[in-house]
Nucleic acid binder design. Structure first.
Lengths: 204, 204
DNA sequence: GTCTATACTGAGATAGAC
DNA sequence: GTCTATCTCAGTATAGAC
């Protein structure tokens, strides 16, 4: 038998990914893990910190892989701006890789974004990485007016988080995660390269 | 002084839109509305049915406007398929209109989608309308392989719901909702028209 | 028909014994 | 480190006043 802490983490990850954070009670988790209720608070402090710990363990390595890929692409480009596709691939390929190794994990990540209001966790674990990618995208799209660019980043984040959740309302083909990410890259890079509107700022 | 039911609805709409459904307690709502706790269950039956009633009152007229615009475009086209832009505009212009008349409403709609698991409400109030628009999009994009098409619809729904929530993580220009919707249409229609991948089915 | 008072169950959190 | 007991607050249900 393994440590109490690990049993809690294991049960929590599965239940959070399946049912969402809010809908999962600590009492459900401790029943699955066969541990005592108070042990959750002893090891993690609170339900929210349990989620934070989970995200820390699972998302940080993926974010590291994302940044490594981006670094590699950038040093290969030797100062020239990357293509939108290269940047999006650097972000999404580690996601696909993690998803095939551990399918529950990506659903959990999607839920964390989609379920909305845990801004603290999102900021803490995703913002630093996200900012590097946004900067790279900005360099790849120098002619896009700023407001247009920022909203497109926003649209992208919506599409990504929704997609990672994994359960489409319309029954789409259940296929390997990798080709889903490829579809997403095609869709998003075309969106980013769309001509800007002429309303507010004009492209250079 | 107005009816208890209206006071509850008013308070609930604002609080749900601001804090989300799960994070808003009935006791908060009744405090704001200055009514008794049990009156919520007398008039609505449960917290979930209160939300359902709210969505019914607010979203159904918008969905009607969406379908009217789509109908108008389709009869003007006289059998020819609509453009992706026309279809997306028919969906998003009523959203923008509703948003300028009642800013809290659209945030609530965004939350309902984003906050994830209230599939019953989403199905009941959005699926019928959504299906008409998906069919129209399918006719506008006859050459897109089915899997590619369905996932692009999925990406679109993610971008839309995320956008309606209204609070971007990256500080984007706060501007009128209408030009935000125009940006979204440009982004999404370019995404829909991106070349498909060559992996699975070939375009006609 | 409406509204109030109150009680019930289950959630997260905490204190203290072991 | 772990467990029991308990606290507060959530959503819900009902009995009864007007």
């Amino acid at each position: 038998m393994i440590h109490t802490k690990d049993k809690i983490i294991e049960a929590a990850e599965r239940l959070f990914a399946e049912q969402g954070y809010a809908s999962t009670s600590l009492r459900q988790i401790i029943a699955e893990a066969a541990v005592n209720l108070a042990s959750v608070h002893y090891h993690f402090g609170s339900k929210e910190r349990l989620l934070d710990d989970l995200v820390h363990r699972k998302a940080d390595p993926v974010n590291q892989a994302r940044l490594s890929l981006l670094d590699a692409s950038e040093s290969k480009a030797a100062g020239r701006p990357l293509s939108v596709e290269q940047i999006l691939n650097a972000f999404l390929l580690p996601t696909a890789k993690a998803a095939s190794a551990d399918p529950t994990f990506v659903r959990l990540m999607g839920r964390i974004h989609a379920e909305g209001l845990m801004p603290a966790i999102v900021q803490k674990h995703f913002l630093p990485t996200a900012q590097r990618f946004v900067s790279a995208l900005r360099r790849a799209l120098p002619d896009l007016p700023e407001a247009e660019f920022l909203w497109r980043v926003h649209f992208m984040m919506g599409a990504m988080s929704y997609t990672m959740c994994g359960t489409p309302i319309f029954p789409a083909a259940i296929e390997d995660f990798h080709s889903r990410m490829e579809k997403l890259v095609r869709f998003l890079s075309a969106g980013f390269r769309a001509p800007a509107g002429n309303g507010e700022e004009k492209p250079a």
